[in-house]
Each structure stands twice: as C-alpha cells, then as structure tokens.
Computed example of a mutant assay.
Amino acid sequence: MTAQTNYTSNDFHRIRHMYRSSTGVTLGHHTRDLVYNRISQRIDATSAQSFSQYLDRLMTGGKSEWGAFTSALGAAPSSFFSRADHFTALKEYLQALQVPGALLWSCAAGTGEEAYSMAMTAHDALGGNVRSIKILATDIDFSALAIAEDGVYTADRLRHLPQRYKEKYLVRLACHEEAYQVVPEIRRMVSFLPCNLAAREWVLKGKYEVIFCREVCDHFDAQTQQELVGRMAGMLKPGGLLFMGEAEAALDGDQRFERRGDKAYTLKLRF
C-alpha cells in the first residue's frame, strides 16, 4: 500500500472535489483516513507511483478507472445478514404487522446482500406470503447494482448466511467456480435502482415500514447526516423501523425516535 507520508492534504482535497463532481456526494473532513485506505488500493491496482500521479491519470483519461474510483469511495462492501440482531428485529416487526403488505428500503444496497437478506427474512417471517411485500434497494454505484440484480455470489460471500437460508433461497450454479444465485422468488421481491442520497430529490415515494441506512452516513458531515435522518423520518410510517450502521451517530437524543435495540430505532407515533 502507498505510504501515508505520500498522501498530502492537496491529494485529499483533489479526491473530495473529483468525487463530488462525479457523484454529488461531499466527503467530510473526517473521511481522510477512509479515503487514504480506499484509494491506496486503486493506486496499487493501477501501478501508479503516487496519489498525484493516479489522480492526474484519472483526469486525463482512464474512463474505465472512474467507475473503480467512485466504487472505492462508496459504502463498505456489504455482506449477508450483517448484524443478525437487526434481522431478528425485522422478522419480529413483520410478524406483528396487523395489515398485509409493507414497503421496505435498503438505501445503500451495494451489491445486494443486505436487500436480499431483508427479502429472505420477510419470506421466512410471513411463511412465503410476500405478494404485498416490496423492497426497494438503491445505491449510487451502477456497477454494484448490476451485480445485485444478477444475484450471483461466490461461496466466500455467503459465510454469514444461515445454512437453512442458503439451502432454501440459493441454487448452486454449474460453473467452474463455486457460485450461487438467489432464487427468482426472492429476486422478484427486490427492485434495484440508482439513487444519490445527496440529491435534492429522491426517486422514492410513499411511506415505508422499514429503512436500512447502514454504513453510509459516515460519508457525510454531521449536518448532512442530521438532514438525511430527518428526510428518512418523514418517509417512515409511525411505528416504523430505522436501522443505522456502526459508523453512524446514535439517535438516542432524537425526540422522533425510540430505541429498539443497538442502532435500531422506532419512529414514535407522536413527536
């Protein structure tokens, strides 16, 4: 990995400017170390000699590398059933619904593991009666969404997937590499579409029972994080669930929410 002594303030500010110009997302000053770790990997992969050389090459060409650049600075790679307690809470919530149907949102879906974990949980919780369950999964990374729509994962990506879910909801593909695909019934529950959380307008409409917003807010400054939580509170149904990631600030002081668990919150009926 490129030595951190070769990573200057100018490099960091260039990266922030280039990423914002490309995606509309402003990386906070607190992301300096995150940016170093992520872009160092791209420097090594492209055999660039320094941050400045890598960025110069990116500006003068390298269209294919732009995708890798923006992907590297996106949310952390997702995994199936990360934070099992969140999915336990989701299952209990869906089982307790008094009316059929629910709209759920995975707002930083990445390559789809979180959204499919939500779909599997819903299918299991409701005994397969999921016609009226809809999961919207969004991300800023088009290449990640393409992977998510295919729903194909190598065995190493399934290490956190419960064995009974693996047997029920995935099929082994006949190929040289051990790979599995999410079954059509689960894939049909999820709609993947691009969405930039930093945009003034979001493509999503309606009221949601559940929102997963995990490991994404750390890309924004504190004020923007508060604005995002406020927008999501406006999109949740009263009593709905909001799940946050380890990096996000706790909402214990937010009068709109009650704590449901570790980084899990219920929107109050009145606030």
Rank of each mutant, 00 (worst) to 15 (best):
N37I: 14
R231L: 11
K91D: 15
D139V: 09
E246F: 13
D124T: 12
V216R: 01
T121F: 02
G24F: 02
F69M: 06
H13A: 03
T121L: 03
V182T: 12
F81Y: 13
L193D: 13
Y169T: 05
H123E: 02
E185P: 04
L55T: 13
L241Y: 04
L236F: 05
S50D: 09
F212T: 05
D124H: 11
G261T: 03
I211L: 07
Q95L: 00
T5S: 09
Q53L: 13
L158Y: 12
H13C: 07
A137S: 07
N6V: 10
G74W: 10
Q4R: 12
A76N: 11
A233I: 11
L236C: 05
S21I: 02
R187V: 00
F69R: 13
V171L: 01
K205I: 03
T26P: 00
L158D: 12
A102Q: 00
A108E: 02
L58D: 00
D262V: 15
S78K: 05
A125W: 06
Q226R: 13
N37R: 15
A89H: 09
N6S: 14
L267G: 03
R259E: 07
H13W: 08
S40E: 12
S71L: 08
Y36F: 15
W202S: 08
A179D: 03
M59G: 06
G234M: 07
A179Q: 14
Q223K: 14
F257R: 08
A109D: 02
A148N: 14
F271V: 11
E248D: 12
L193G: 15
S79A: 13
F192V: 07
A76M: 05
V210R: 03
L126V: 04
G234C: 04
T46G: 02
Y169R: 01
A249C: 01
E65D: 11
K166H: 15
I211K: 01
F87G: 06
A45H: 12
S64H: 05
G128F: 13
T23F: 15
W105D: 08
T46H: 11
M120R: 03
T31S: 14
L34K: 05
L267C: 03
H86K: 09
S78H: 04
D85G: 00
V210P: 00
Y116K: 04
F12H: 10
P238Q: 03
M120T: 02
Y54P: 00
H30F: 11
V25D: 06
D262T: 15
G151F: 06
